[in-house]
Nucleic acid binder design. Structure first.
Length: 819
RNA sequence: GCCGGGGUGGCGGAAUGGUAUACGCAGUGGGCUUAAAACCCACCGACUGUCAAAGGUCAUGCGAGUUCGAAUCUCGCCCUCGGCACCA
């Protein structure tokens, strides 16, 4: 028989389920919209897609975020920390195709599973605010916004070459193509000509570049800036009247100062003037070149390492500044989607043009004088600054001055104009898939594009469809859905069968949490006033130029449509890093890490704390199977330390020991508050461990009074509560406290306790530590020098030497510079 | 190629101009136990030194520099992990 009954031991599996139920019954995490005397604080994590199970990556994202939200709650904020499910999307549909199950059933069963597993985690979510994007109550509002966007020219339908994923059989937005591959499945993306729906995000390109109102990691802001890719330059027209009567080729350049160095023009093979320009003897070469271009993959085509190729059209264009005729080529290194789809070739000052010119024996004419140039040929393009040469009346000007003068000249003579181009494209939202929000549009032979009237929303997604994988939306084959009547003329008409990109769902979900049950509006204005913008957003960096960009766009669009009056969705953003295991990526097959056995063995508190302890959250961490033992041992120590029998405490305290333990206690509080504010969970826990180590040292010595001891224990528990909600609550209750620990306030520190009488001063000789002396903390430099030079260890060094300088850092060190 | 994060004991990591290696893991020795687990105590960068110590030297990717003093600041490299990449 064990000395202790189970009642006295820390058995996580006994206490954890009990508290989940109790917290839920008492509704302690239910958030009121307004609480007198408290500031609102909206803590949000990027909501999950409900795949099979809540895996360790979810835990790593959500548990520390929950601890932070709990910490803010205990600091006295009225915290809303909601959770929901981003539940439209391909996996459900793919599961349906593979296993012949209904996507809706599959999704809802996963959601139920997630709900259960989230409860195990002990997160402080307000489940009464849960939202599920695949429910009609939610996606109705996607449709509503679509219609508003359409009315206000923020949504439009256009045909063009769209990114197409042959595996997922749908189009993709530019942001969802990474390295020429589908961001989801990694399949090489091809181009397909299709009529698609777009959101006009480019309207906000400039405003999206302004990030003065968001406190986000520099990295994310930079990624967005690069993605938007603003560049200022000039569109200039080259006359091609000899070949196309009255025609011109417009090229975009950021280097108009190099206009006199143009020795050729290159058009993208898709450029609309190619057919008109191509000369008889070049027809065959040009068409076979275009054919080849269409054959190669997008990855290959956009690879920078690839040879630059092209073919002459046989036509010439006239440089409007010097009247020179230059040959026109087509080449696939010129992209039809950027600028005007045509570039002026300046081999002397652009490396790509240089390579192209060398390959096809074209002239290289220097117009900006390179540094140390002696008139010889170039080995590579000169990209630096310099004075204009070979540039007629602009000769001798610094090129950045010439840039402005030449631009003025071009505008005055109406041969072109200053312009700005962006890498950012409009957001393609059509998806040829079933499991998403139906786009609320009807096509009528007479009335053309007709929006579904607001009163007919939601356009419900039909329950049953056939998955024939034709590359068209499965809704196309559901005649009941497809066939309808025109709302305008009542004649038979057809519905749009594409569904929306699921990033539409997540672009405004944070607003829905504010009034999740609202039936007559997507969200209530009053609640937006109470809660927006999200004070603290937390999630992975992989969404930098997808969700986080779309969401900012949506906020600005909704503002302009009068729904809200804020400019940004998320004021503060923190990205967690990646969790790896024993130096390798975690993978279901090769390096698995399933949370379930961990919880069974150690409990959720241990798992939560270990995830926070194993490294700095923002940088990611390395899980070790043995490392978790340390956290479990520590929680066990906390348990026995806090629940010691009162007999072991003394009535004859030692004032010095008490002073010291109170100093450590208050120092722990200071460290904890600072570290939690900075999301440094690892050092927060280390601080608490040091505190428990100190408490252990004095626990049996009988030098601490009951009063001081209890003060320390309470302080420890209140700091532990956000990280380990179960064990702290259990101990709190066993100690006879009334009310949940999670409704208490975090104690502050009192700096009077931090002061100490004596400090250890390091004595250095020439910057090297030679001794340590204990002195009064307020000691003067003179006294410190006296004590230091009396020390035997120091005497050895300074005998027969001169002290030429003394550096004194109060409370830290005294450094003697000797010669 | 460009942009960003990072490189510290056997391992995860701490310290952002002032005692490098906090905290934890692993390891070693001891206690408790019939035994094991658990738990408790002590030690734990390398080299040198000693019966033991005291002490000394070296060490934060590499090389220079600034400073009384550098993991921390500056310059130049190397490695690694992310992101972007023919954007005219």
């Amino acid at each position: 028989m064990s000395k202790y009954s189970n009642k006295d031991r820390y058995i996580p599996t006994d206490i954890e389920p009990k508290w989940v139920k109790r917290w839920e019954d008492d509704g302690i995490y239910r958030t009121k919209n307004v609480v007198e005397g408290k500031k609102n604080y909206f803590a949000l994590t990027m909501f999950p897609y409900p795949s099979g199970d809540l895996h360790i990556g979810h835990w790593y994202a959500f548990a520390p975020a929950d601890a932070h939200a709990r910490f803010r709650r205990m600091q006295g904020y009225n915290v809303m920390h909601p959770q929901g499910f981003d539940s439209f999307g391909l996996p459900a549909e793919n599961a349906a195709i593979e296993n012949d199950i209904n996507p809706s059933e599959w999704t809802w069963s996963n959601i139920n599973n997630f709900r259960r597993q989230f409860r195990t985690m002990g997160a402080s979510y307000d489940w009464s605010r849960e939202i599920v994007t695949c429910s009609p109550e939610y996606y109705k509002w996607n449709q509503h916004f679509f219609l508003k966007f359409y009315e206000n020219n923020l949504a439009y339908r256009a045909s063009g070459r769209a990114n197409w994923c042959p595996q997922d059989k749908t189009t993709l937005a530019n942001e969802q193509v990474k390295d020429g591959r589908c961001e989801r499945c990694g399949t090489a993306v091809i181009k397909k000509d299709l009529k698609q729906w777009f959101f006009r995000i480019t309207k906000y390109a400039d405003e999206l570049l302004n990030m003065s109102k968001i406190h986000w990691p520099e990295k994310i802001k930079l990624m967005q800036k690069n993605w938007i890719g603003k560049s200022e330059g000039v569109n200039i027209q080259f006359n091609i009247d000899d070949f196309v009567p009255g025609g011109t080729i417009e090229t975009f350049t950021t280097r108009i100062d190099t206009i006199y160095g143009v020795t050729f023009i290159v058009l993208a093979p898709e450029h609309k003037l190619v057919n008109e320009l191509v000369q008889k003897k070049q027809i065959e070469a040009v068409s076979s070149y275009i054919e080849n271009t269409n054959k190669i993959s997008e990855i290959e085509r956009t690879s920078a390492e690839r040879d630059k190729t092209g073919v002459s059209t046989g036509a010439y264009a006239v440089n409007p500044l010097n009247g020179e005729k230059v040959p026109i080529f087509i080449g696939d290194y010129v992209l039809s989607t950027y600028g005007t789809g045509a570039v002026m070739g300046v081999p002397a000052h652009d490396q790509r043009d240089f390579i192209f010119a060398k390959k096809y024996g074209l002239d290289v004419r220097i117009v900006i004088e390179p540094k140390n140039w002696e008139g010889g040929n170039l080995e590579e393009a000169w990209l630096g600054e310099g004075l204009q040469v070979n540039s007629e009346k602009f000769n001798g000007l610094p090129n950045n001055v010439a840039k402005e003068r030449i631009s003025d000249y071009i505008e005055n003579n109406k041969i072109g104009h200053r312009t700005t181009t962006y890498h950012l494209r409009d957001w393609l939202i059509s998806r040829q898939r079933y499991w998403g929000t139906p786009i609320p549009i009807i096509y009528c032979v007479d009335c053309k594009i007709v929006p579904v009237p607001e009163k007919d929303l939601p356009v419900l997604l039909p329950d049953k469809v056939e998955f024939n994988q034709t590359g068209k939306s499965p809704l196309t084959e559901n005649s009941k859905f497809l066939n309808t009547v025109c709302p305008k003329c009542d004649k038979p008409a057809e519905r749009e069968t594409d569904t929306m990109d699921t990033f539409v769902d997540s672009s405004w979900y944070h607003f829905r949490f504010m009034s999740p049950k609202s039936q007559f509006a997507p969200f209530e204005k009053d609640q937006v006033k109470n809660w927006a913008p999200v004070h603290q957003y937390m999630g992975g960096a992989e969404h930098a130029v997808m969700h986080l960009l779309y969401s900012r766009f949506f906020t600005k669009a909704l503002r302009d449509l009068g729904y809200i009056d804020i400019d940004e969705p998320y004021s503060n953003l923190v990205n967690q890093g990646m969790l790896i295991k024993e130096h390798k990526k975690i993978s279901k097959r090769s390096n698995p890490l399933n949370p379930d056995p961990v919880i069974k063995r150690y409990g959720a508190d241990t798992l939560r704390c270990y995830l926070m302890f194993l490294g700095p959250w923002e940088q990611g961490g390395d899980w070790s199977d043995s490392g978790i033992n340390g956290i479990h041992r520590w929680l066990n120590r906390c348990w026995s330390l806090c629940l010691r029998k009162p007999e072991s405490k003394t009535n004859n305290p030692d004032p010095d020991e008490e002073k010291n333990i109170l100093r450590v206690a208050h120092l722990t509080t200071k460290r904890l508050i600072d570290d939690m504010n900075a999301f440094k969970f690892n050092t927060s826990i280390a601080a608490m461990m040091e505190f428990t180590n100190e408490l252990s040292k004095v626990a049996d010595k009988g030098t601490i009074s009951k009063k001081v001891w209890n003060e320390c224990i309470n302080r420890l528990l209140l700091h532990l509560a956000p990280m380990a909600p179960y064990i702290s609550e259990e101990i709190w209750q066993r100690l006879g406290n009334v009310g949940s620990i999670h409704l208490q306030n975090v104690p502050d520190y009192d700096s009077q306790y931090l002061e100490i009488e004596n400090v250890t001063l390091v004595v250095q000789i020439n910057g090297r530590v030679r001794d340590q002396i204990t002195v009064a903390s307020g000691i003067t430099q003179e006294d410190a020098l006296q004590i230091a030079s009396d020390s035997e260890k120091i005497k050895r060094f300074i005998d027969d030497k001169d002290i030429i300088k003394t550096i004194f850092v109060p409370g830290r060190l005294i450094n003697l510079v000797i010669k």
